[in-house]
Protein backbone atom coordinates (compact mmCIF):
# COMPACT_ATOMS: atom_id res chain seq x y z
CA UNK A 1 0.00 0.00 0.00
CA UNK A 2 1.27 3.41 -0.88
CA UNK A 3 0.34 6.40 1.13
CA UNK A 4 1.71 9.85 1.21
CA UNK A 5 2.02 12.18 4.13
CA UNK A 6 0.96 15.56 2.94
CA UNK A 7 1.63 17.45 6.10
CA UNK A 8 4.16 16.62 8.74
CA UNK A 9 2.65 16.51 12.20
CA UNK A 10 3.73 19.55 14.14
CA UNK A 11 5.26 17.54 16.97
CA UNK A 12 7.88 16.23 14.55
CA UNK A 13 8.62 19.69 13.30
CA UNK A 14 9.13 20.77 16.84
CA UNK A 15 11.42 17.79 17.53
CA UNK A 16 13.40 18.61 14.40
CA UNK A 17 13.80 22.16 15.48
CA UNK A 18 14.96 21.17 18.93
CA UNK A 19 17.42 18.70 17.53
CA UNK A 20 18.91 21.33 15.25
CA UNK A 21 19.16 23.74 18.10
CA UNK A 22 20.85 21.20 20.37
CA UNK A 23 23.30 20.26 17.63
CA UNK A 24 24.16 23.85 17.15
CA UNK A 25 24.69 24.44 20.83
CA UNK A 26 26.78 21.28 21.12
CA UNK A 27 28.91 22.14 18.11
CA UNK A 28 29.87 25.45 19.66
CA UNK A 29 31.61 23.56 22.46
CA UNK A 30 33.11 20.86 20.27
CA UNK A 31 36.88 20.87 19.88
CA UNK A 32 38.20 22.97 17.06
CA UNK A 33 38.36 21.32 13.70
CA UNK A 34 41.12 22.22 11.28
CA UNK A 35 41.86 25.88 10.89
CA UNK A 36 38.45 27.06 11.84
CA UNK A 37 38.35 28.50 15.26
CA UNK A 38 35.42 28.27 17.56
CA UNK A 39 32.86 30.86 16.79
CA UNK A 40 33.42 31.06 13.08
CA UNK A 41 31.97 27.58 12.72
CA UNK A 42 28.54 28.93 13.36
CA UNK A 43 28.85 32.45 12.16
CA UNK A 44 26.80 33.47 10.36
CA UNK A 45 23.87 31.19 11.15
CA UNK A 46 22.05 30.27 7.96
CA UNK A 47 18.54 29.31 7.03
CA UNK A 48 17.71 27.94 3.60
CA UNK A 49 14.35 28.08 1.87
CA UNK A 50 13.65 26.30 -1.37
CA UNK A 51 11.15 25.31 -3.96
CA UNK A 52 11.69 23.92 -7.45
CA UNK A 53 12.87 27.16 -9.03
CA UNK A 54 14.60 29.25 -6.43
CA UNK A 55 16.56 28.95 -3.23
CA UNK A 56 16.67 31.72 -0.65
CA UNK A 57 19.41 31.82 1.95
CA UNK A 58 19.07 34.08 4.95
CA UNK A 59 21.97 34.67 7.32
CA UNK A 60 22.01 36.35 10.68
CA UNK A 61 25.03 38.59 10.68
CA UNK A 62 24.43 41.60 12.91
CA UNK A 63 27.01 44.32 13.12
CA UNK A 64 28.68 43.59 9.81
CA UNK A 65 29.24 46.50 7.48
CA UNK A 66 27.54 45.63 4.15
CA UNK A 67 30.72 46.72 2.39
CA UNK A 68 32.61 43.96 4.15
CA UNK A 69 30.34 41.17 2.93
CA UNK A 70 31.39 39.06 -0.03
CA UNK A 71 29.08 36.56 -1.69
CA UNK A 72 30.37 34.06 -4.24
CA UNK A 73 28.61 31.36 -6.19
CA UNK A 74 30.33 28.61 -8.09
CA UNK A 75 28.01 25.98 -9.53
CA UNK A 76 25.93 24.89 -6.58
CA UNK A 77 28.21 26.12 -3.82
CA UNK A 78 27.57 29.44 -2.13
CA UNK A 79 30.28 31.11 -0.10
CA UNK A 80 29.63 33.98 2.26
CA UNK A 81 32.64 35.67 3.72
CA UNK A 82 33.34 38.90 5.47
CA UNK A 83 34.58 40.57 8.55
CA UNK A 84 32.92 41.76 11.68
CA UNK A 85 34.91 44.59 13.15
CA UNK A 86 35.01 44.85 16.91
CA UNK A 87 33.68 47.98 18.51
CA UNK A 88 36.63 50.21 19.01
CA UNK A 89 36.00 52.30 22.03
CA UNK A 90 38.59 54.53 23.65
CA UNK A 91 41.54 52.72 25.05
CA UNK A 92 40.49 53.21 28.61
CA UNK A 93 37.55 50.92 28.92
CA UNK A 94 37.00 47.96 31.07
CA UNK A 95 35.07 45.03 29.66
CA UNK A 96 32.53 43.37 31.89
CA UNK A 97 31.18 40.96 29.32
CA UNK A 98 32.36 39.83 25.92
CA UNK A 99 29.92 37.45 24.35
CA UNK A 100 29.92 38.72 20.79
CA UNK A 101 32.42 37.16 18.46
CA UNK A 102 34.32 39.38 16.06
CA UNK A 103 36.77 38.82 13.28
CA UNK A 104 36.81 37.31 9.82
CA UNK A 105 34.43 34.59 8.80
CA UNK A 106 33.76 32.43 5.80
CA UNK A 107 31.12 29.82 5.23
CA UNK A 108 30.26 27.65 2.28
CA UNK A 109 27.02 25.84 1.78
CA UNK A 110 25.93 23.45 -0.90
CA UNK A 111 22.70 24.50 -2.53
CA UNK A 112 19.88 22.26 -3.62
CA UNK A 113 20.74 22.79 -7.30
CA UNK A 114 23.19 24.66 -9.55
CA UNK A 115 22.14 28.28 -9.82
CA UNK A 116 22.13 30.96 -12.46
CA UNK A 117 24.93 33.09 -11.02
CA UNK A 118 24.03 36.04 -13.28
CA UNK A 119 20.73 36.53 -11.52
CA UNK A 120 21.65 36.12 -7.89
CA UNK A 121 20.32 38.95 -5.75
CA UNK A 122 21.67 39.74 -2.30
CA UNK A 123 20.38 42.29 0.19
CA UNK A 124 21.32 43.22 3.73
CA UNK A 125 18.91 44.76 6.16
CA UNK A 126 18.93 45.09 9.94
CA UNK A 127 21.70 42.57 10.31
CA UNK A 128 20.13 39.89 8.13
CA UNK A 129 21.60 38.95 4.78
CA UNK A 130 19.19 37.56 2.22
CA UNK A 131 20.34 35.93 -1.00
CA UNK A 132 18.00 34.80 -3.74
CA UNK A 133 19.42 32.20 -6.07
CA UNK A 134 17.38 31.16 -9.10
CA UNK A 135 17.91 27.68 -10.43
CA UNK A 136 20.00 27.39 -13.58
CA UNK A 137 17.91 26.91 -16.70
CA UNK A 138 19.94 23.89 -17.73
CA UNK A 139 19.16 22.16 -14.48
CA UNK A 140 15.41 22.66 -14.50
CA UNK A 141 13.35 19.55 -15.00
CA UNK A 142 11.86 19.23 -18.45
CA UNK A 143 8.51 17.85 -19.24
CA UNK A 144 8.54 15.22 -21.88
CA UNK A 145 5.28 14.66 -23.61
CA UNK A 146 4.41 11.15 -24.48
CA UNK A 147 3.05 10.69 -27.95
CA UNK A 148 0.66 8.03 -28.89
CA UNK A 149 1.72 5.98 -31.81
Amino acid sequence: MIYRRYSVPSIWQEMDRMQREMNRVASAFAPERGERSRGTVNFPALNAWTDDDVEVITAEMPGVDPKDIEVNVVGDVLTISGKRSPEDPDAEVQYHRRERVCGEFSRSIQLAFPVDSEHVVAGYENGVLRIELPRAEADKPRKISVKTA
Binding site: E60, R97, E99, R100, N126, G127
Partner: peptide, 21 residues
Amino acid sequence: RTDIYESADELVLVMDMPGVS
Protein backbone atom coordinates in the same frame (compact mmCIF):
# COMPACT_ATOMS: atom_id res chain seq x y z
CA ARG B 1 24.64 38.13 22.97
CA THR B 2 25.92 41.19 24.71
CA ASP B 3 29.16 43.05 25.24
CA ILE B 4 29.32 45.40 28.18
CA TYR B 5 32.10 47.85 28.74
CA GLU B 6 32.65 50.75 31.01
CA SER B 7 34.61 53.91 30.50
CA ALA B 8 35.19 56.80 32.86
CA ASP B 9 31.86 58.42 32.12
CA GLU B 10 29.57 55.80 30.68
CA LEU B 11 28.50 52.19 30.58
CA VAL B 12 27.91 50.78 27.11
CA LEU B 13 25.87 47.73 26.15
CA VAL B 14 26.25 46.27 22.67
CA MET B 15 23.65 43.65 21.82
CA ASP B 16 23.26 41.47 18.75
CA MET B 17 19.67 41.58 17.59
CA PRO B 18 19.49 40.54 13.97
CA GLY B 19 16.25 41.56 12.27
CA VAL B 20 15.55 44.41 14.65
CA SER B 21 15.15 47.98 13.45
